[in-house]
Design a protein around this nucleic acid. Sequence first.
DNA 1: TGTACATCAGTGAACGCGCGTTCACTGATGTAC
DNA 2: TGTACATCAGTGAACGCGCGTTCACTGATGTAC
Lengths: 209, 209
Amino acid sequence: MSEAKRVESRPYHHGDLRRALVDAARRLLEAEGPSALSLRAVAREAGVSPAAPYHHFKDKAELLDAVAHEGWEILGAQMSEAKSGATGPDQLTALGIAYVCFARDNPALYRVMYDAARDKEDLPGDMQDNKESAYCMVRDTMIENGADPSQDGHLELASVAAWCGAHGLAEMAGFRQFDHLKEELGGERPFLEAVLNHMGLFPKAHDGC
Amino acid sequence: MSEAKRVESRPYHHGDLRRALVDAARRLLEAEGPSALSLRAVAREAGVSPAAPYHHFKDKAELLDAVAHEGWEILGAQMSEAKSGATGPDQLTALGIAYVCFARDNPALYRVMYDAARDKEDLPGDMQDNKESAYCMVRDTMIENGADPSQDGHLELASVAAWCGAHGLAEMAGFRQFDHLKEELGGERPFLEAVLNHMGLFPKAHDGC
DNA sequence: TGTACATCAGTGAACGCGCGTTCACTGATGTAC
DNA sequence: TGTACATCAGTGAACGCGCGTTCACTGATGTAC
């Protein structure tokens, strides 16, 4: 490649290849699915040699971790936005819907997030401490709507139950077996809301504790 | 290998290599995880050449399907057994627990089952028709305990919600974040029961419909 | 009961492929003087 | 302002590997006569 050509398209030094690699990974992910996410494919997609990523990530796993991390951040942001668009107990519904919609809109990213977590047998480390995390947002919203934080076990139990329900729904919502039920209920969104409502995710007011 | 030696260890013809391959796959799966499940590795584990499986399966996917199919059968059998060990509304609890325990005891197999389903965007075809399937067992048990089959939407909604909740819990139960909660509640089993109880999985008697 | 022969169910070598990672390299950048 | 030089961030070729699949083959089995 001549110098002129190179300057035209892209300088030798990239500027922010780390960022570009994560973006490329996400593009690949949604276009081709998680199984297509090789380090070489990511480099290719970013227009860079297979060795280049090693200046920014120790190995493939570290790149995947970065992708997953970004996924959790986006999920947190979308849930935060959904929460601020509702008031009272509706906030919990909004959080649940936002969660499931994120998974539906980014199925491959969602998968990578949980694959990375499962490998470590750990959800992201800051999930139970960071106030901005998706998990804490659910718990805190429950408290704001009347759950009793002094009954710690119950509160955390309710958060876990909500989390499980939303995750389960996120993974099930794509199966064609449920198409006719969606149709019957008037579309995907009503379906999602209806299923969430059938779970203990929304203790309207303060029902059990 | 001399003829004498071969007869000693295993005849040239295997007898039931198909069966042996599925067994080998399951052994590998739980020992090394889903990523280790290559066709060659399965053949190796079964003590057979890499080409041998092609006399029993069209390709790798077909072998994986067979493994997944067996998984669904075992799950159905274990849930059936759990149900017959309980009476009344306890049967639903028993089904939920059996489901989650299956996933906990066979994490890699459970993963393969859902991976195969997701690839097709379809849960196993007979799931909604076959009376012996895990899904129908949940629905039928709900009916037996007072759900109204004429309100089809509600019933199916309740089944789906239960299914989602159990699946979500199955995937979450392994994370270390919940260790202290398990401990607090007196072990894994009480934890699983407590979370399931926080969901709508158990409409004690006939609460909502 | 013995034999010819078709069919079945294995073998083992080979194919091409994409992978993760390493290496010596080089072009670009920034800093000290 | 110009120059020497260290450092940074790329290149591209190469490594060894395990994979899925195909192929011509051969040993074992069962059946017809």
